[in-house]
Computed example of a mutant assay.
Amino acid sequence: MTQTASQLTPPADSGYQPTSDDLAALDEWFRRYDGYAAAGDVSATADLAMFPLNTVTDNAAGEGSAQQLTRDEYLRQMAAVLGGSADLQMESRRTPHFLTASLAVVFTDAEFTIDGQRQRVRYADVLVKTGGQWRFQTMIQGGWGDHTG
């Protein structure tokens, strides 16, 4: 069957404006995720993901990369990140950009205090609402390419 140009045109999108309920649901999702992360509960953070999970990063040489992680791979990698600190505190300022009621890209400016050392980071997450629940599907943050395989 031959497709016409109009069949290939993306659907019209005037820009989704999130409701206060949309914003509150996303804020609550991040409160849960942050709580699990601060507690080092990697399994609980994985329960909030949609697998395979995309990760996008770069390395010190400026080479970008992307990979997909299974749940087991995510658990192994994040255990090294979240499970190793005796004292982790996080302060985050998030800016969500809703593409639709069920697709959002969230930019985060955060400050982590790990064993008394403060560190600022910026990252982004792509979240997908499925089955009425938000799930993170893509994690984007620079600098991890030298630390992951």
Rank of each mutant, 00 (worst) to 15 (best):
R120A: 15
P11V: 09
T55N: 05
H147A: 12
L88M: 11
M90N: 04
I140N: 02
V81M: 06
R122T: 14
A24F: 01
D21M: 13
Q7S: 11
R71W: 04
W134K: 09
A25K: 11
R120N: 15
A110Y: 05
A79W: 14
D47N: 15
A24N: 04
F112I: 08
A110F: 07
G84K: 15
T113K: 03
P18Y: 10
S65N: 08
S85W: 13
T100C: 01
T9E: 03
Q141I: 10
D27S: 10
H147M: 10
L69V: 03
G142W: 02
A60K: 10
D34F: 07
A110I: 12
I140H: 01
L53A: 04
Q117L: 13
F98P: 01
V105H: 03
A101C: 10
H147F: 12
T9I: 06
T113H: 02
A12C: 03
D87F: 13
W144V: 02
Q119Y: 08
A60I: 01
F98E: 03
G143Y: 09
L88D: 01
G145A: 04
Q137T: 15
S85T: 10
I114H: 06
T100G: 01
H97N: 13
A46N: 09
D22V: 14
E111A: 07
T55W: 00
T4P: 00
S43G: 15
P52I: 03
D87C: 10
D22E: 05
R120T: 15
G83K: 14
G15D: 02
L48S: 08
L127N: 04
L48K: 10
R31S: 09
L48H: 09
Q67I: 01
G145K: 02
V106K: 01
F136S: 07
T9L: 03
R118N: 13
Y123H: 11
A86S: 15
S14I: 12
L99C: 09
L23A: 05
S65D: 05
T4V: 05
R32T: 03
T4G: 01
A49E: 03
Q141D: 04
G145V: 00
N54F: 01
P10H: 14
V56T: 12
Q7A: 07
V128C: 02
T138G: 02
Q7L: 06
R32I: 00
A86W: 13
A25I: 14
L48C: 08
E73C: 09
G62P: 05
W29E: 04
Q117I: 13
T108E: 04
V121T: 12
T113V: 13
V106T: 08
K129S: 09
A12K: 12
G62M: 06
M50T: 09
H97V: 15
S6F: 07
L69F: 04
Q77N: 14
F51K: 08
L48V: 02
R122Y: 06
Y74R: 07
Q137W: 10
K129M: 08
A49Y: 00
A25R: 10
S102A: 06
N54T: 15
T108F: 01
R32N: 09
Q117F: 11
S6M: 06
E28W: 08
G84W: 10
T95C: 01
T55Y: 02
A110W: 03
R118F: 11
G143P: 07
E63N: 15
V106D: 00
L88N: 05
A66T: 11
S85V: 07
T4A: 00
L82W: 12
N59A: 07
I140V: 13
